[in-house]
Amino acid sequence: MNKKNKYSIIIPTYNERLNIALITYLIFKHLSEFCFEIIIVDDGSPDGTQDIVKQLQQLYGEDRILLRARPRKLGLGTAYCYGLSHASGDFVIIMDADLSHHPKYLPSFIKKQMETGASIVTGTRYVKKGGVHGWNLMRKLTSRGANVLAQTFLRPGVSDLTGSFRLYKKSVLEDVISSVVSKGYVFQMEMIVRAARKGYHIEEVPITFVDRVFGSSKLGGSEIVEYLKGLIYLFFTT
């Protein structure tokens, strides 16, 4: 059964020159027994991310690593759509390029899907064996607050709404993504809430999240406002 399914891993990048090389190595290391392709959607990074991807293509093969570049930053949601349109797998995995999502968890996503036949397997940080590293108290507080609000008002049935390490059946991702309108931070939340409302079978696997090693991640007041707006929007439309 392992050999039959093909997995397309979509990774949007912007200035991830070093990280994309590291993550590609780790994916090939941990997924060696599965059939997969990596689709890198690069939004015109000025740091030479695409040059590195071309070198990786030389190393691993152009059929295993697909570079699908776009001229400029066009947003996360459309990056997934764009990557999806080039995916040839039966399943699509989306993950971040910044190493906060470790490829060593990929086999557990795939196994979970095989065992349960789920349409979506989503990584969760907030259960046993999961976890987060590199967050200060304020970041933890915001995250917990956001989660309690979402759990109370949306009741989505999953414990980690804003995580973006997920495996989808390709047809399910195509269906869900076409009904999602949010951008940025709220996008992941809308995806999983809409999928839950449509009645898709969703399973969870624990993942650990090590906040980005190179570069910096941010969560400011405007992100919180965007999140609350997204929550209200989802509350009334789903």
Binding site: L22, L26, L99, H102, R125, Y126, V127, K128, G130, G131, V132, H133, G134, L137, K140, L141, R144, N147, V148, T208, F209, V210, V213
Partner: peptide, 19 residues
């Protein structure tokens, strides 16, 4: 949630080795 916030300092070390 804050009291039982799962953390993983060990994972950060492992990641450094992987890098």
């Amino acid at each position: 949630g804050l009291m039982f916030f799962p953390t993983c300092p060990h994972e950060a070390e492992l990641l450094q080795k992987d890098i």
